[in-house]
Design a protein around this nucleic acid. Structure first.
Length: 115
DNA sequence: GCTTTGACTGGAA
DNA sequence: GTTCCAGCCAAAG
């Protein structure tokens, strides 16, 4: 079964998986997501993934310092959606100290011993 | 295989 | 406080 090397590159899937793990009422940053996905310096790719992979809570992804990097009307919408989830804004930024989600490391089956 | 593209980031002005 | 620049990295054309 040869199949093309994954329709979506691992980087995209990894980032998408990380973003899906962000619970409601929490946020994260591009850099944090990229790092959690295994690509520490690929913050820019996170933005691409958000566009390529639908169904992701894109509003929960913010720029550094909790600021909204999304230009245009979408920036306001992002803020609106986050507030609807209970995230409070401090001016133009989110209080990351309170709402930044802490990604747990990939846990391999807790019951299967062997690491 | 080279070029362009990004919802970025951090530092300097 | 804000704005601009250069650096980084992988995917898509």
């Amino acid at each position: 079964m040869k199949r093309p090397p994954t329709p979506k590159p691992p980087l995209t899937l990894a980032i998408a998986a990380v973003i899906r793990r962000i619970p409601r009422g929490r946020v994260s940053t591009y850099g944090a997501v990229a790092e959690a996905a295994g690509y520490p310096r690929c913050a820019r790719h996170v933005s691409k993934v958000l566009n390529q992979v639908p169904g992701l809570p894109w509003q929960r992804v913010l720029g550094s310092g909790g600021r909204i990097s999304l230009p245009g009307e979408y920036g306001f919408e992002q803020r609106f959606l986050l507030e609807a989830e209970g995230v409070r804004f401090k001016g133009r930024r989110v209080d990351l100290a309170r709402y930044e989600h802490c990604f747990l490391r990939k846990r391999r089956k807790p019951s299967s011993g062997k690491r």
